[in-house]
């Protein structure tokens, strides 16, 4: 197994009246190079799960596995792990604390004790990978940037460690439509060109459904669906019952099918929908 969990459970505030079972025997695995989505209603345990994957939370039961080895509690082990598994929090730019973009992105590599020449190399590469121009941004105060740019700096701050796995919690929250498209295009290229394994936790399926290889659905701390994206998205009624939604273009195709038309419903992007409706029209005309 590359990365995943076996019967992972987590209880918040155990032994108090507020004890809450956030995860219950969650098992899943990702292959190297996967682009996976983690979805589920609010409160289903998504954020709790991803915090286990780089050792920020310790299991109450079960295991977290990375490259066939169980994560131990040894601190050296965890440091190495967090270098390889990068976690981008929700609204990560709210945690910025440095005076310049350079210092913000350099924080993690410096913490690992790299010399300043190597740190600068990493920072340059990370900014380049997110498409921010070194000359324009490295000297600026992070708070002077636009929301979209701040989010990219937050991503660069994680990429500066050159992780192999990138986990993102609601990476597009608060971004405008242009910013959302840009960020997802970037994640796609990090996945396809640079070979990063990507796990995105999101409520907004419109831009990302088309990119996913596999999907994990949590509800009340348990895995209720997991598998290839096309198989999971085909279970629309179960989705709706959970209060989740598929992309709007997928809904359009389902509505056409419900109206008695022989429309394909495994459609997740505008261009796919456009092609299928054109093809449907030709098929009907014959």
């Amino acid at each position: 197994m590359f990365i995943g969990t076996e019967k992972l459970s987590h209880i918040y505030m155990p032994g108090t009246p507020y004890a809450t079972k956030a995860l219950e025997e969650v098992s899943f695995s990702l292959d190297r190079g996967d682009f996976a989505l983690l979805i589920g209603p609010s409160g289903s345990g998504k954020s709790t799960l991803i915090q286990h994957l780089n050792g920020l939370l310790k299991p109450s039961g079960g295991k977290v596995i990375f490259e066939d080895r169980e994560l131990g509690s040894d601190s050296v082990d965890l440091l190495a792990l967090r270098k390889r598994i990068g976690l981008v929090f929700q609204m990560a730019e709210e945690h910025f604390f440095s005076e310049t973009v350079y210092d913000e992105v350099a924080f993690a590599p410096r913490n690992l004790g790299l010399d300043e020449v190597k740190v600068e190399q990493n920072v340059k590469l990370a900014l380049e990978r997110v498409g921010l121009e070194w000359e324009v941004v490295h000297d600026r105060h992070p708070f002077q940037l636009s929301s979209g740019q701040k989010r990219l700096v937050a991503l660069a701050a994680v990429l500066s460690l050159q992780p192999e796995v990138l986990i993102l919690d609601e990476p597009t929250a608060g971004l405008d439509p242009g910013g959302r498209l840009h960020l997802f295009a970037l994640l796609k290229s990090l996945n396809q060109q640079a070979g990063l394994t990507v796990l995105v936790c999101t409520h907004h399926m419109d831009e990302v459904a088309d990119l996913a290889d596999s999907v994990l659905v949590l509800n009340r701390g348990k895995v209720i669906m997991s598998g290839p994206a096309h198989d999971i998205f085909a279970r629309r009624q179960e989705f709706n019952k959970l209060g989740l939604s598929l992309p709007e273009v997928t809904e359009v195709m389902h509505c056409l099918a419900a109206a008695g038309l022989p429309a394909r419903t495994d459609i997740y992007s505008l261009e796919q929908a456009r092609a299928e409706i054109n093809s449907l029209k030709r098929r009907l005309e014959k």
């Binding site: 405008d176 439509p177 242009g178 419109d206 709007e248 273009v249 359009v252 456009r274 409706i277 054109n278």
Partner: peptide, 19 residues
């Protein structure tokens, strides 16, 4: 850098295809 709804975007694409 904004968008219409997915349905309005799709409708516009289909209009250019002659719908």
């Amino acid at each position: 850098g904004l968008q219409g709804t997915a349905s309005s975007e799709l409708a516009a694409l289909l209009r250019t295809d002659g719908f």
